[in-house]
């Protein structure tokens, strides 16, 4: 009896091992197959932080300076970002809420921290003082801030990504093409001037062998 019970526990554990891995895969596959295609404009990142292992650290203009909200959010809690499209065709955040939206495209993510937003206003004696704007800035732990690449391609990808995001030039546009389905986001590719990052690297290899 005891032996059977232990065997049952082991069998359930094995099911859990396969179950967890399968769930991760199935949800992402469904997102990649049925999700809505969205594009996020990327933002520059600190070059020394760009690589931790074999991935490109991504940052987005829509989130990099925090998302404005009417209220504060507790760190580590889940929130939902309702998205809309700007005039350039990139996704931006229209609102942030703690309850699941019933319609529209949204992302489920965790709050890193939030703080009261302030604005600096000039005083008569030529100094500045900070005044609250009545809004809150919410910083997020985005679930799509890493793009994994093989060891050989990673340094070139980092250079291409950084070049495209160099604030002074901004000649090229780096964009993350993602799929969103029921709050889940999966990165499809990174595009530089509309071309997949791998193609850009290959082309640069041919020009500069």
């Amino acid at each position: 009896m005891k032996r059977k019970l232990i065997f049952l526990i082991i069998a359930l554990g094995i099911v859990a091992q396969f179950g967890l891995l399968s769930t991760i895969i199935i949800r992402r596959e469904l997102t990649l197959r049925s999700g809505e295609i969205c594009r996020f404009e990327t933002a520059p990142v600190d070059p020394f932080d760009a690589f931790r292992g074999q991935y490109v650290q991504l940052s987005y203009t829509a989130f990099s300076s925090g998302v404005l909200s009417d209220r504060s959010f507790t760190a580590n809690t889940w929130c939902y970002l309702l998205l809309t499209t700007d005039t350039n065709g990139y996704q931006i955040v229209s609102s942030i809420t703690d309850s699941k939206p019933t319609s529209g495209t949204f992302i489920r993510t965790r709050v890193r921290y939030s703080y009261e937003d302030h604005i600096e206003k000039p005083t008569p004696d030529n100094k500045y003082h900070r005044e609250p704007t009545g809004k809150w800035k919410v910083h997020l732990n985005l679930p799509f801030d890493r793009y994994y690449m093989p060891e050989k391609l990673a340094p070139q990808a980092e250079t291409a990504y950084r070049e495209a995001n160099r604030a002074a030039r901004r000649e090229k546009q780096a964009v993350a093409r993602v799929r969103i389905w029921r709050g889940m986001v999966v990165i499809e590719d990174i595009e530089i001037d509309g071309k997949p990052i791998r193609e850009v690297i290959q082309a640069e290899r041919i020009i500069k062998p």
Partner: peptide
Amino acid sequence: ISLIAQTYHIS
């Protein structure tokens, strides 16, 4: 877990 995370770019 690691290989699946790499495949789907999971942060």
